[in-house]
Computed example of a mutant assay.
Amino acid sequence: MTKSAANEDKVPTTSTSKAVPSLSSAQHLVPNRLAVIGKGMRRNNLLLPNVLDADIQRWYLWSSVQQRFNPNLQTPNAFIGWGHKKSYQRAKRAADRQQLTTLSIEDGFLRSLDSGIGSRHGLSVVVDDIGIYFDLTQSSRLEQLIVARAKEYANSDSDILNKVHARQLMTYICDKQLSKYNAVITCPSLDKLVIEENTNLKEDSV
């Protein structure tokens, strides 16, 4: 969900759910070369590069100087920061200096099998190039998508079918007891599974 700051090297992200119609009319693209200030974002969500399907590089004060004299270093297409926290503010200042887009990243609405504190393996994120959904003092990409889709449905002959799809999706979420953290479901800790897997690999290599 980015601006057209970089029109190349982008990976499309679309809905794959069979319970709802295609979102091709609201398709957005995330650059595959991103820069982050500090190490907190990648440390707190180990799957972030996989979820975004992007290479995330650490950006330092001297990075722009290095890239100016070393053409082999790849320039990021956009900067990312968490919500509207300090990491986002720092990323925006750096992006403005490089004349690049800043994307706000937040946990997705179906994030993981545990809370953000208990697990560093978040399986979904929200990417917003306008604002962020919880900040009602300004618009957000999610708000604009909802408004645009509402207008589209209002002028569509398939309005009844769309409502049926929406009800099916809501029913599915309730039946499967899905939530942001899914904490009410008995499930293994992903952090624990990763530790056990790494331990087994070390033992097998001995």
Rank of each mutant, 00 (worst) to 15 (best):
T102R: 05
Y153D: 12
D107Q: 11
A166H: 01
A6M: 00
Q66V: 09
S24L: 01
Q168G: 15
K10T: 07
E106D: 10
K86M: 12
D159T: 02
G83R: 12
Q98G: 04
N7G: 03
G116K: 02
K192S: 10
A91V: 04
D157Q: 10
I185F: 04
L23G: 03
S87W: 07
P21W: 01
S119R: 03
S124F: 07
E196N: 10
V127I: 05
T101A: 10
G118A: 14
L100C: 04
R68D: 08
Q144F: 00
D107A: 09
K39Q: 09
P21N: 01
S25L: 05
V147I: 13
A78E: 10
A6R: 00
S139Q: 14
K10H: 02
I195D: 15
E8I: 00
S104T: 05
K151Y: 13
G81Q: 11
D114G: 11
T171S: 14
M41P: 09
L178C: 07
E143G: 15
N44M: 08
A95Y: 06
V65Q: 12
R68A: 14
A94E: 13
T199Y: 06
A54S: 15
Q74F: 06
S156D: 14
L169R: 09
Q177L: 08
D107C: 00
S124Q: 11
L29N: 15
V194E: 15
Q168R: 10
P188R: 02
V30K: 09
D204E: 13
I130P: 03
Q177N: 08
R111V: 01
L34V: 12
Q138F: 01
V36Y: 10
K163Y: 09
L190N: 15
K176V: 01
S64L: 00
R167F: 13
V125D: 06
N45I: 06
Q89C: 03
T75H: 04
S158F: 07
E152I: 02
F134I: 07
L46I: 13
L34N: 14
Q177S: 09
R111K: 04
D53Q: 13
T16L: 06
I80Q: 15
F79D: 15
N77D: 08
G116R: 01
I80A: 12
T75N: 00
I130C: 04
R120T: 13
R43P: 06
K39I: 12
N162K: 08
N45M: 14
L23K: 06
A148K: 11
R97T: 12
P12H: 02
S17M: 06
N7T: 11
S64N: 02
D96V: 01
N162T: 08
Y60K: 12
C187S: 15
N162L: 08
E196M: 03
D55V: 12
T16I: 03
L110N: 07
K85H: 14
M170S: 14
E196T: 13
Q66E: 12
Q74R: 07
L34Q: 12
L136A: 15
L48D: 14
L201V: 13
L136W: 08
A26G: 10
E152W: 11
L178F: 08
T102G: 03
K10W: 00
V194G: 11
Q66P: 00
G40Q: 10
S156A: 11
G81S: 07
F79E: 14
S119K: 02
N182D: 13
L190I: 06
L136V: 12
I195M: 14
F109E: 15
G118P: 02
W82Y: 15
S87T: 11
A19K: 01
A166I: 07
